[in-house]
Design a protein around this nucleic acid. Structure first.
Lengths: 345, 345
DNA sequence: AGCGAGAAAGTAAACGCTTACTTGGGATGT
DNA sequence: ACATCCCAAGTAAGCGTTTACTTTCTCGCT
């Protein structure tokens, strides 16, 4: 009796000498069954190593217990922290994750989204590039969704966003309070919502006149783009006395370039980042940054999605903003006591 | 009227005034259809925003076009690089990824594996903790699988492993060649295959007598455990003159502890890691490490799995070993010219 | 003893799709 | 003009589940 094909509920039913309905009832704990029947079914199922075929099950129950996760092309620790938060929350609820990452443009994202039809009960979409219309078009109208770090006008679903504006503003205000005068910015990719918000925070903290003449370099959130920007900064005249990078990765790349150019951080030039990825505290000097609770963002978003799936038509498409926290370390000079600034037990 | 429920093939058929069979034929490009029919169907489908229900489709085709990815609790860039490699290769083949990460023990992994039945065409399992028997038990016997960094005796499926032993050995030999005498090791978690192999490589390079008295500290691949180990190392007498950490994350944590203890790297103590995660080149001093092509590992594994799915019963459960490469940077003193050692454009 | 209530188990109809098989013509060959 | 072949399109079975509905008993009650 080779088990070339996996056992089905029918096989179990035959072996246990009951109907498939009873097998189903036993396995799902629904309906009433006598103990002897229960035992027979359980034994048969175990013997055949039976596992229900999920596709068949979800066809009839209209539930896949899977949620789709659509991510842009994000790198490194930001990515892993986010997934970690989502994965944990999902596991807690017994949900599976269908992950599709590395989406450059809206078309790719829309395609991936369509392909998820019938595979997922809802989607978590991180689409810093998509505006409301593209999203509405891409999302099947029935599909519960939760948006992450998405522009404000994308009102088709609840959204969770990091307070990029507030965090950036606080950071730049901190730098100004420390006495830095010429603060430059390494921006994230164009058209990206988070990037834009952080830039806006940067400018808001500087005020109209200062912002107008501030040096803003283009980047794309990778270490490498930070490195390139760092080279330009080191060569600029007049040289800025502080740099606020739009994320930690770029700050780290920048740090490397600055050091190569013979500049000391923070003595010659202060450096700050955004995200507080785990590595930030381990570089030299430890990086002053804005803590964004990425794992928490993932967790909350998944919880909200799970809720939206269980209670459809709750209708309130609230936009939740997760606060940030200034983490002062040594890369900007003004070191203060801060429990988060040191690693360790 | 309202599209409370997503449109089905039937709706399309009715609207196009053809049978569902014809709709299916048009949409899948199978069978012959006249151009007028084709057009009608296409128009109807578009108008209804029809997307086939994947669960139904895979129920009959017995293909899900999805592969399961089972990962242990790995962190940071190792994780994201691996996923990136897998995701890219999957996208190229039009495959979806059902990801389940953060599995501590074998039981959890087995559970996750079972839950994937009927959802995936095959699985990619990274199970540095699982031995052959547990795996055989957990894996549905019919399910194509590819193993990642798994102990050698797990012969149920093809495996892709990093040459942890060779890489570690080469690194320690390099350290010895540089003249270091008392080389310590920060090990990875117990029971982990990679950890064990790297330790074995460390010992092999030292030779029996030296290995017997070498300082080996326990770690678990996190920065924090590296930090703790670093504190112990700084306090040890006699203090080692070099440390080989089982991965880069721990090396980075260790670096931080050493520096806190007032030690200079590499002058007072040399430091080396393993993996060459992207960040390794950006810390100070840039970390000498062993490059493991993690992205490539993911890519090759996925390709092999796709092949195993398309051509079942190919039967050759080969074990592929991916070579490593010594990346000499500054953390061990003996700086040499090496293109990989510097970042840049 | 007879009857109804309830519990346990079975029957069969979906779920949305693909596909082997059948049907119905029009074109072709003689 | 009639048989033959083929192509386009339709019919319906079946993928593995769940579940509403039905059947069959066993009890308890009068």
């Amino acid at each position: 009796m080779g088990d070339l094909l996996a056992a089905t509920i029918k096989d179990v039913a035959i072996r246990a000498r009951v109907s498939t309905a009873s097998v189903s009832r036993v396995l799902n704990g629904s309906g009433a069954v006598t103990e002897p029947t229960r035992q027979r079914v359980l034994r048969a199922a175990q013997h055949l190593r039976y596992t229900p075929h999920e596709a068949a099950r979800s066809l009839i129950t209209r539930r896949t217990r899977t949620i789709g996760v659509l991510l842009p092309d994000i790198h490194g620790e930001y990515f892993s922290e986010l997934i970690r938060g989502i994965d944990r929350a999902a596991r807690l609820r017994g949900l599976h994750l269908l992950v599709s990452s590395s989406h450059g443009d809206a078309d790719e994202a829309a395609l991936a989204l369509r392909a998820m039809n019938g595979r997922v009960d809802g989607v978590l979409v991180m689409s810093p590039y998509l505006d409301a219309r593209s999203l509405d078009e891409a999302l099947p109208p029935t599909l519960p969704a939760v948006l992450l770090n998405t522009p404000a006008d994308a009102g088709r679903a609840p959204a969770f966003v990091i307070d990029d504006f507030g965090g950036a503003k606080a950071m730049v205000e901190h730098l100004r309070a420390l006495g830095y005068q010429r603060i430059a910015h390494i921006a994230g990719p164009g058209g990206n919502y988070e990037s834009a918000e952080r830039l806006r925070g940067f400018q808001a903290a500087l005020g109209r006149t200062l912002a107008a003449k501030a040096l803003v370099l283009a980047g794309n959130f990778t270490e490498e783009s930070g490195y390139l920007a760092g080279q330009q900064l080191a060569a600029a005249t007049p040289r800025p006395d502080a740099v606020f990078a739009s994320n930690d990765m770029m700050a780290i790349g920048c740090l490397f370039a600055l050091r190569e150019a013979g500049l000391r951080v923070p003595e010659d030039i202060a450096l700050a980042g955004f995200d507080d990825i785990p590595i930030a505290r381990y570089i030299t000097p430890p990086l002053t940054t804005v803590r964004a609770q990425i794992t928490e963002l993932g967790r909350q978003a998944l919880d909200a999605l799970a809720h939206a799936i269980d209670e459809p038509g709750d209708g309130k498409f609230v936009r939740h903003t997760l606060g940030t926290q200034l983490v002062v370390r040594e890369s900007c000079g003004g070191m203060r006591a801060d429990p988060a600034a040191r690693p360790g037990p």
